[in-house]
Design a protein around this nucleic acid. Structure first.
Ligand SMILES: [Zn+2]
Length: 674
DNA sequence: GCAAGGTC
């Protein structure tokens, strides 16, 4: 492929800031503002170049068909079909008009499948695919960009095909199942409500459902431990231990008396080691969102929007990244000298600058297009708002920490023998604080320093028996749910927080004092999704889509084959569901599929569909599971302590960590036994 | 109006 001599080369960037960087790297200094959009022109290696930005996707899939099943769709201008994307119109118009005068096109969007689609669709609609090439770079640094433009590649049509396929598969599943759900809702509850389902949101909702069941069907376990108060040097140390045994109440009481009688313990082993605490790597977006919540309770969605505005003010690098690595070419000394003008960091930074070399710690996470989040060195020109300040401060401190020395922790473990039993106590002392001085949010564990010699006797000042009750997993927060999505490999940096917000907007989730919980609607949608669309309800669908996209990239599969496969799974099912929805006598069956009361067999506690029967009591799946857990749990409780079933039920009612369904079943059983 | 993915 040979570049034509006449006309200019139109370079399409994914976003305005990237267009600026590309122009800068290629020395294209002619800045013009067309229709409110910044574009750049100049000469690169003798050819006239023009760089203009998109703003992410400028086209979107859409259909004119109502109802479902729906398998016909086409790409349309995004600003036309999406209210919140009207701002994209001016970028759309500018690219459209500049494309007319161009003789060549370069797709210089991020080198990933979405970037390939963004540039491809613009060239396809406004330009000429046969006169196009792809710029391939993994960061927007001058070196990489110059090399990418000296070695322009043929258009990456397999990446494009994979990208188009991802859009189509998500559209087909999402739109069809959402419409089926709305149709179900109308039929069963009588009114219209906006509902949705999708490859990422549905497994996330179902994970909250699982946690809801786990917590609300939870029966605390009882445990008996020995508490000891020891004299260690001049200090008193309180500890709890079960000596590695699952003690019954009787055993614990006997042990307490025996230990009281001895009154002392002996140090029989001493192990000391120095633990090296490496600085944390610089932030990727998930880490920043997690820390902003942990340190300042800022929600993941708000953290992203704050980071976005810091990025647009040029204070930090691009935030929607998964990378925990900084570019080798980044000039840390320049950034540090600039940061030293800020009072908060001045002292620490001046120490860092004395180091002979500055090599940031790297994490393992990578990103195809953007490095870890770091301060640019540009300083705020006006005072930041409170939350902006908090997020900016976190980013700066994390960056400084990544350039800092390791911290050293001295950990000494002493094994004490009392009677024929052993227990360990641990002393922790910070020998060198290193990076912990600048990033002091990290929990190093309570520091408690003491020292004992081998063979030394330790007096036991007090002994007691402590009864403890286990607790269920915590309810999810927006932060821990986002972490779950990340670990499960669903969604992207840019979308996870927003998808959690969508689940709230649909009325599937609610915020309670202990965290996120499912609403009644959320429970119905989870249940019907699991029953009718099991594929969409699991993170496994994402794995399968990814495998197929990889095969499209290697040429083993085509987009049409993958779309045909999805259609063949979904279409027959949608047709039979539609038939069910259209029939007159289907409401009962539909209610059953949603786990709702279907008329004849309902739970004696909540009227949901009964799926269990115990002691002549019809119980729904929640109360049925709660009943089973209560029975199992009583078995273990009664082995450890003398307690009647009624006493046990009353005790469970009094414990805060007992689940809602468990309490309701306990109350019912108590009232029946009166 | 529904997805998930870009970006303001
Ligand atoms: Zn029930």
């Amino acid at each position: 492929m040979r570049l034509r001599d006449a006309g200019y080369v139109l370079v399409i960037a994914e976003k305005p800031r990237a267009a600026d960087k590309i122009a800068m790297a290629l020395n294209l200094s002619g800045k013009r503002v067309v229709n409110g959009v910044r574009v750049w022109e100049g000469f690169f290696e003798g050819r006239k170049f023009l760089v203009a930005p998109a703003v992410g996707h400028l086209f979107s899939l859409d259909t004119e068909e109502k109802g479902f099943p729906v398998f016909t769709y086409k790409w349309v201008p995004r600003w036309l079909v999406e209210r919140k994307s009207r701002y994209a119109r001016k970028y759309f118009e500018v690219l459209k008009s500049l494309a007319r005068g161009a003789s060549e096109y370069v797709n210089a969007c991020d080198y990933d499948i979405e970037g390939s689609v963004i540039g491809y669709l613009i060239i396809k609609h406004f330009g000429d695919l046969s006169r196009s090439r792809r710029a391939k770079f993994s960061s927007l640094t001058k070196e990489e960009l110059v090399s990418a433009f000296r070695n322009l590649q043929p258009l990456d049509l397999r990446m494009v095909e994979a990208g188009l396929c991802r859009h189509e598969v998500d559209w087909i599943w999402g739109i069809n199942v959402s419409r089926a759900l709305m149709s179900f809702y109308k039929k069963v509850f009588g009114d219209f409500k906006i509902l949705s389902a999708g490859r990422v949101q549905t497994p996330t909702l179902i994970e909250v459902f699982r946690r809801h069941v786990e917590r609300e069907c939870f029966v605390p376990e009882i445990k008996f431990n020995i508490s000891l108060k020891l004299r260690v040097g001049s200090e008193e140390l309180s500890i709890r231990s079960n000596f590695g045994k699952d003690l019954t109440e009787e055993e614990a009481n006997r042990l307490k008396i025996a230990i009281e009688r001895v009154g002392k313990a002996r140090v029989v082993d001493v192990k000391s080691r120095t633990e090296v605490l490496r600085p944390p790597p610089p932030f990727n977006l998930p880490d920043l969102q997690y820390e902003a919540y942990r340190v300042a309770k800022i929600s993941p969605a708000l953290t992203l929007s704050i980071a976005e505005s810091l990025y647009l003010d040029q204070l930090i690098s691009y935030p929607r990244t998964n990378s925990q690595k900084l570019p080798k070419t980044l000039n840390h000394r320049t950034i540090l000298r600039s940061l030293s003008n800020l009072e908060d960091y001045e002292e620490y930074v001046s120490e860092l600058l004395k180091k002979p070399s500055l090599a940031p710690v790297e994490g393992s996470k990578e990103d195809p297009a953007h490095p870890a989040i770091h301060p640019t060195g540009y300083l705020p020109r006006k005072p930041l708002k409170e939350r902006e300040r908090v997020v900016y401060d976190l980013i700066v401190r994390r960056y400084l920490a990544s350039l800092s020395d390791e911290a050293l922790l001295r950990i000494s473990t002493y094994v004490l023998r009392v009677l024929d039993l052993e227990l360990a106590i641990t002393s922790r002392e910070l020998l060198r604080s290193g990076w912990l001085r600048i990033y002091d949010y990290e929990e190093v564990g309570a520091l408690k320093k003491f020292s004992l010699r081998l063979g030394e006797e330790v007096s036991i000042l007090d002994v007691g028996v402590v009864k403890t009750f286990s607790k269920p997993s915590d309810a999810y927060t927006k932060s821990s749910l986002l972490k779950w999505m990340e670990r499960s490999g669903i969604g992207t940096e840019a979308t996870r927080a927003e998808i959690i917000e969508t689940l709230f907007k649909r009325g599937y989730l609610k915020q309670t004092t202990s965290g996120i919980d499912l609403t009644e609607l959320g429970s119905v949608i989870s249940t019907i999704s699991t029953n009718l669309f099991s594929e969409l309800s699991s993170v496994q669908l994402t794995r399968e889509v990814e495998e197929r996209l990889d095969k499209i990239i290697t040429g083993e599969l085509s987009k049409d084959e993958v779309v045909r496969e999805v259609t063949s799974v979904l279409k027959p099912r949608l047709i039979s569901i539609k038939k069910l929805l259209d029939s007159d006598e289907s409401v009962k069956e539909l209610r059953r599929l949603a786990g709702l009361d279907s008329g004849d067999a309902s739970c004696v506690i909540c009227q949901r569909l009964a799926e269990f029967s115990y002691e002549g009591l019809r119980l729904c799946r929640f109360h049925g599971i709660a009943y089973e857990r209560l029975r199992e749990s009583y078995e273990t409780w009664s082995k450890k302590t003398k307690i009647s079933f009624i006493e046990f039920l009353n005790k469970v009612l009094s414990l805060k960590s007992s689940g809602k369904y468990v309490r309701e079943v306990a109350e019912l059983l108590i009232s029946r036994r009166k």
